[in-house]
């Protein structure tokens, strides 16, 4: 199962547009194995589009894209054996019971871990017989995380997983994530508006604005860079706001 690929995600000049509106305009970055890479951006900045391109759900108009050494658009089904996804909107069919969602994913996955799935659901306190439509927003997100992690992915893609969650649910989700990272060293690509959570988890951060990455580096590197400009150590939120407002120029 060991893959010699050091860079789990390689994106070069990625362009995507809807109708005449260019949403991604020459995005380039790499994500190293075992790291947590966070993509920050305002609403509509192109984060979800970027994630959908990475997952092979949208075909890029231009640029090259490899995830775990595969082209996502052409090899999506194979790629998804190694990628776990927690989408922005928990979108499991509402009529399904939790059990159905688990069984569906288990039947399609080649390395599904039922024990892990059961233990995780127990920790979250989600009854397996409950319908998806009857779960709370937080429980839906937890279910999605459970579905994503139980397939033992090498890459975990989290598209704003804590959007709309209360503080407790957010913390439980992050704790579960940190536990998995500690256990298996999964590579994570995360998009979020929760900058505190990102600051705690992320090894590297990219800020996307107007379809392009306008700032990128480790949290420490960004802080050091902005210390030079501002004269004090700003928080990630302060950096994000300044970068987005000024297009990366101090």
């Amino acid at each position: 199962m060991d893959n010699p690929v050091e860079d789990v995600i390689v994106v070069e000049g990625l362009v995507h547009s809807f109708s005449r509106e260019r949403v991604l305009d020459g995005v380039s970055f790499t994500v190293k194995r075992g790291s947590v890479f966070a993509v920050l951006g305002r609403n509509g900045a192109g984060k979800t589009t970027l994630v959908q391109c990475l997952l092979g759900q949208l075909e890029p108009r231009a640029g090259t894209l490899t995830v775990l050494g595969r082209a996502p658009w052409r090899e999506r089904a194979k790629l998804m054996q190694e990628v776990g996804v927690v989408p922005e909107a928990p979108d499991a069919p509402p009529a399904w019971r939790v059990r159905d969602a688990l069984a569906f994913c288990a039947r399609l996955s080649s390395c599904w871990d039922w024990n892990e799935a059961s233990a995780r659901l127990k920790r979250f306190g989600i009854p397996v017989m409950r319908r998806v439509s009857e779960l709370s927003r937080g429980q839906k997100a937890q279910l999605q995380l459970c579905l994503a992690l139980s397939a033992r992915p090498r890459l975990l893609v989290l598209d704003d997983p804590v959007l709309g969650l209360d503080a407790v649910a957010r913390r439980e989700l992050y704790e579960e994530l940190i536990r998995d990272l500690a256990d298996r060293g999964t590579t994570v690509l995360l998009t979020s508006h929760d900058l505190d959570g990102v600051e705690r988890l992320a090894d590297e951060v990219a800020i996307i604005s107007g379809g392009a990455i306008v700032a990128r580096g480790t949290v420490e590197e960004l802080k050091n860079e902005w210390f030079g400009r501002l004269g004090n150590y700003p928080g990630l939120e302060e950096i994000f706001v300044r970068v987005v407002r000024n297009g990366g120029v101090a």
Binding site: Q52, L55, G56, Q57, R76, A77, K78, L79, M80, Q81, V83, V85, P87, A89, D91, A92, P93, F104, C105, L108, S109, S110, A148
Partner: peptide
């Protein structure tokens, strides 16, 4: 809701 299905290895 297609994302749920497309996020699976199918």
């Amino acid at each position: 809701r297609e994302g749920f299905f497309l996020a699976r290895p199918v």
